[in-house]
C-alpha cells in the first residue's frame, strides 16, 4: 500500500462529508500529493478501489488540474504569475532571470531535484505584482534579488 493508514483515515473523514463518496476525490488527491508529491499508478489503483471507480477515472482528473501530477516531482514547485497585470509590472523579466539563476527553462526542474520552475496564469495577486507561488505560499511585490534569495533558501 502506498497510501498510508493516516491518509486513508483522513480520506474516510472527507468521504463522510459528501452525499456521494466521489465528492471527496479532490480532497483525497490533495492528501496523496501531500504524502507523495504525485499520483503514482499504484496510488491511482488504490484510490480507484477506495472510490469504487476505475484507475483511468482517477487519472483523467489528475491530468485535468494544474496542481496534480502523474510523475514524481522535485521538492518545490515555483510558479511565477505571467498573466497580464503581472506582465505589465515585469513578471516576464523576473521569470527569465530566475530561469537563468537556476539554469533551467520554465517548465523544467533543477538537476538536484529541488525546484521545478514555471509560469502560471493569474493567481489573484494583481496589485502586488510581480509575484510567485512557492508550493502553497505566495511571495508578492517581488524584486529579482529577493526572489533569488527565496529560491536559494529552499531545501
Amino acid at each position: 500500500m502506498v497510501i498510508s493508514a493516516a491518509s486513508r483515515e483522513k480520506i474516510a473523514l472527507e468521504i463522510a462529508k459528501y452525499p456521494k463518496p466521489r465528492g471527496a476525490l479532490l480532497p483525497a488527491l490533495h492528501l496523496v500529493h501531500a504524502e507523495h508529491g504525485h499520483v503514482s499508478p499504484e496510488a491511482a489503483r488504490e484510490l480507484a478501489q477506495i472510490f469504487e471507480i476505475r484507475p483511468f477515472e482517477v487519472m483523467e482528473v489528475v491530468s485535468f488540474y494544474n496542481m496534480f501530477f502523474a510523475t514524481p516531482q522535485p521538492r518545490h514547485q515555483v510558479r511565477v504569475c505571467t498573466n497580464l497585470p503581472c506582465s505589465l509590472r515585469g513578471a516576464r523579466d523576473l521569470l527569465h532571470r530566475l530561469e537563468a539563476h537556476l539554469g533551467v527553462h520554465a517548465g523544467g526542474a533543477t538537476a538536484d531535484g529541488r525546484i521545478r520552475i514555471g509560469h502560471e496564469e493569474c493567481l489573484g495577486a494583481c496589485a502586488y505584482a510581480p509575484m510567485m507561488r512557492v508550493d502553497h505560499q505566495y511571495h508578492e511585490d517581488l524584486d529579482v534579488e529577493r526572489a533569488k534569495r527565496i529560491l536559494d533558501a529552499l531545501d
Binding site: R22, L26, L29, H30, V61, F64, Y65, N66, M67, F68
Partner: peptide, 19 residues
C-alpha cells in the same frame, strides 16, 4: 486544484463531484 473553468458554476459542480 488549478483550473480557471471551475469558476464557471457548472464546471465547479462537476469538480465538486470529483470530476
Amino acid at each position: 486544484a488549478g483550473a480557471y473553468i471551475c469558476g464557471e458554476e457548472t464546471g465547479l459542480l462537476e469538480s465538486l463531484e470529483g470530476k
